[in-house]
Design a protein around this nucleic acid. Structure first.
Lengths: 353, 353
DNA sequence: TTTTCTTATGAGACCGGTCTCAAATGCGAA
DNA sequence: TTCGCATTTGAGACCGGTCTCATAAGAAAA
C-alpha cells in the first residue's frame, strides 16, 4: 500500500519560530493554558494566522489522555429508533464540545466486541452501548472508561443506564388487546434468543426484551390466557426467513387475532405481511407496536403505538455519561422513563366468537 | 474540571520488559512489522497476553500520520435517506478496517465548517461531505486530505462525487403529472436558498437542488406551462413556519393540483398537511416524492416515488474515497447513478377542468 | 579459517502536542 | 540600593507508539 506523501503540517514549533518565542510559550497561547503576556499572545496568534496553523488533536490527546470523543455502539442506525436516540446523544455531546464516533453492531455480539475494542484503542473518553446480547457481558465488564447503557439494562452490570418502563408499557398495551376480547395474542420481536426460552422468562438477561415479555405474560394471565409464552416469536429481524416466519404465523391454524410488535421496523414488516395475506386491520387482526415511528400515523388505519421518549433517552444517557467524564463518582443511576400509549385505529374487537 | 485519574495503561515498553526484549523488538511483534524470530515473537505475545496489553491507536496514528478513520458530515442523520447512505458508507469502511466519525450539520454551513474543522483536527484520513450550501465552499476547497461529495455535486470543486440523475428524475416525475393534465404543479424542497431565485436557476450551485429544478421546469415548459418558477417552494424543513407555509400553500387560491416533494421527510409533512386540510390524494391533489422511504408503500393511497439507489450511493462514495486513501490519483470521478420511478396510487388526473 | 551476506536485535530519534521546573524579569517594599 | 515575590519565559522530559540505523550473531561462500 503506497502512502500518500504526508502533508507537512504546521506545528507549534513552526509558529514559535515565526513569532520568535520558545515552543513552550507558543504552546501556551495556542493551547490556552498557563500565563502569557499580552504582547506575546498577540504575536503568537498573528504568526499562527500567517502560517495557517491547525492544532493536531491527536497529539494533544496523547499527552492529556483525553480524546474528547465518546463511542456509541447501537444495533442498527437505520432503525429510526436508534437514529433518533443518536440524534439526542450528538446534540448533547456537541454542547459539551465532545464528538461522537458511531459504530453499528448489527445486533451481533462479535461485531459489538470488535467495535468496542476499536473504540477503546482510539482512546474514547466514554462509551454508550446498546448491548446486543445480555448473555455475554464479559467484554462490557472489563471496560476501563465510563460506560453507559442505552435502552437496555443489564442486571449484572452496575453502570448508568437509561431505559423506558418496558414492562408496564407491554402490560398496558396487552391489556388494551385483552379488553377487546383477544385471546390469541402474539408478541413479535427482532431479538434473538440464545438458548431455549420456554417458560423461563427470567433467564432472558436483556432487560428490554425480558421486561416486555413479563408485562405481556402478566396481562395475558390477568385475562386468564394460558400458555402465552408459546406466542412469543423471536428473531423476526430483517431477513427472508423472518418474513417467511411471519407469513407462516399469519397463515397457521392458530393465527393470532392480535399482535404486539417490539419495534417499528418489525411492525412495518408485519403490516405489509398482513396486507399481503389479505387480512384487514383491525377487522381480522389488531396491531400495536412499540415506537411512534413517523409512518404509524399515516397508514390506513393508523397504528396504535407505545410512544417512547426516544430523543430524551439519548439525551439523558449522554448527559449521564458526560457527567461521569467530568469526574462525578456517584453510584450508577438507572433511569426509567415513562411511556404513553397513543391509541389510534389499529385495535378492534377480536374476530373470534 | 477534575481530571479522572488516568488508568495506567500497559505500553509496549511494559511488554518488552516482561518479555525480556527491547522496546523496539516488542513493538515489531505488536505492530506486525519488521522481522522477528519465532522464539521472540511467541515470548512477546505471551507477555502481552499476561499483561493484557491494548495498543493505543492514537499513539500509532501520531507517528504513522494516518488515523484509520474517515469523517462523514451529513445534513440530518434522522432523515432515512442519510441513515441509509451512512449505512452504506459504514459497511464499506468496516471491510477496509476504517471507522467512521459522524457529524451532523443540520444543513447549516457554520455547523458544517465547524464539524470539518474538528474532524480535520482529529486527523481523519478522508472526508465525505454532503455540502449544506453551495455558495460557500471555501472551507471545502482548502481541505488538504481526500474529500468526496455525497448526493450533491459542486461545479467549482473537482473531487470525487456520487449523485443521482436528479434532473432526469425530476423531468420524468413531472411528466407523469403533466400527462395527467396538471398545470399548477408545486415543487417543495427543504433546501434553503441564499439570495433571490426567481428565474435564475443557473445561479443555484447545489447540483441536487438545481438539477431537479431544471428538470421540473423543463417538463413544465414541454407542457406549455408558463412561470413554473413561481411554484417552487424552498425551506420547508422541520419547523413550525414550514408547516404553516405548506398549510398556506394548500389553502391559497392558486392551490396546486399536484406536488413534487424533494425528500421523504418533506413528503410526509405534506401528506399530513394535505389530510389535515381535508383534501384527498389523488382526487384533489397528486403527490410524487423523491426517495422510496419505507412508509410510502403503506399509506392509503401508496405514494408514487422516485427510487434512488441510496445505499449504493453511500457504498460507492466510500469506495471512491478509500481508493484515494490508498494512493489512487486518477482525476476526480463524478458518478451519476440512475433512478427509477415506482408508480403507485398517488397520482390522478387533474381536478381542474 | 576468514570474509561476506543475511537476519535479528537494540538504541534512540521522532511525531506534535502538554507540562514541570528552573531561570529571568519586573516591581514594590525595606 | 537591595531583597522578596509574582509573573513571564525557556529548556527539555514525556505521552506511546513507529522507524532508522548500527551492531551482533549466524550462515554461506571463499
Amino acid at each position: 500500500m503506497k502512502r500518500p506523501p504526508k502533508a507537512p503540517s504546521v506545528t507549534v514549533s513552526d509558529v514559535a519560530r515565526e513569532a520568535g518565542v520558545s515552543k513552550a510559550t507558543a504552546a501556551r497561547v495556542l493551547g490556552g493554558y498557563g500565563t502569557v503576556s499580552e504582547t506575546v499572545r498577540v504575536a503568537v496568534l498573528e504568526a499562527a494566522r500567517a502560517l495557517d496553523y491547525r492544532p493536531n488533536e491527536l497529539a494533544r490527546s496523547m499527552t492529556t489522555g483525553r480524546s474528547g470523543s465518546i463511542g456509541v455502539v447501537v444495533g442498527d442506525i437505520e432503525n429510526p429508533f436508534f437514529s433518533l436516540a443518536v440524534r439526542g446523544i450528538s446534540d448533547v455531546a456537541r454542547l459539551s464540545g465532545i464528538n461522537v464516533i458511531l459504530a453499528n453492531s448489527g445486533e451481533d455480539v462479535e461485531a459489538e466486541k470488535n467495535a468496542i475494542r476499536v473504540l477503546l484503542a482510539k482512546q474514547v473518553d466514554g462509551l454508550i452501548v446498546t448491548p446486543a446480547q445480555a448473555g455475554e457481558i464479559a467484554h462490557l465488564k472489563e471496560i476501563a472508561c465510563p460506560l453507559a447503557l442505552l435502552d437496555r439494562a443489564l442486571p449484572g452490570l452496575a453502570v448508568d443506564t437509561v431505559t423506558v418502563d418496558d414492562r408496564n408499557a407491554a402490560l398496558q398495551a396487552t391489556r388494551i388487546l385483552t379488553r377487546e376480547g383477544h385471546r390469541r395474542i402474539a408478541y413479535v420481536t427482532a431479538a434473538v434468543l440464545s438458548g431455549d426460552f420456554r417458560g423461563a422468562a427470567s433467564r432472558i438477561n436483556t432487560s428490554t426484551v425480558r421486561e416486555r415479555i413479563l408485562g405481556f405474560i402478566e396481562a395475558c394471565r390477568e385475562a386468564g390466557i394460558e400458555g402465552a409464552e408459546r406466542n412469543i416469536h423471536f428473531g423476526s429481524g430483517r431477513s427472508e426467513s423472518a418474513h417467511a416466519m411471519v407469513q407462516r404465523l399469519l397463515k397457521s391454524q392458530e393465527r393470532p387475532t392480535a399482535i404486539l410488535a417490539s419495534d417499528s421496523v418489525v411492525a412495518l414488516d408485519l403490516f405489509k405481511a398482513i396486507r399481503e395475506c389479505g387480512f384487514s386491520i383491525p377487522r381480522d387482526i389488531s396491531l400495536i407496536t412499540f415506537h411512534d415511528a413517523d409512518w404509524t400515523s399515516v397508514t390506513t388505519p393508523p397504528i396504535t403505538v407505545i410512544d417512547q421518549p426516544v430523543y430524551a433517552l439519548g439525551k439523558l444517557v449522554a448527559e449521564l455519561l458526560i457527567r461521569r467524564l467530568k469526574g462525578d463518582d456517584r453510584p450508577p443511576e438507572r433511569i426509567v422513563l415513562p411511556t404513553t400509549i397513543i391509541e389510534r385505529m389499529s385495535v378492534g374487537p377480536s374476530s373470534e366468537i
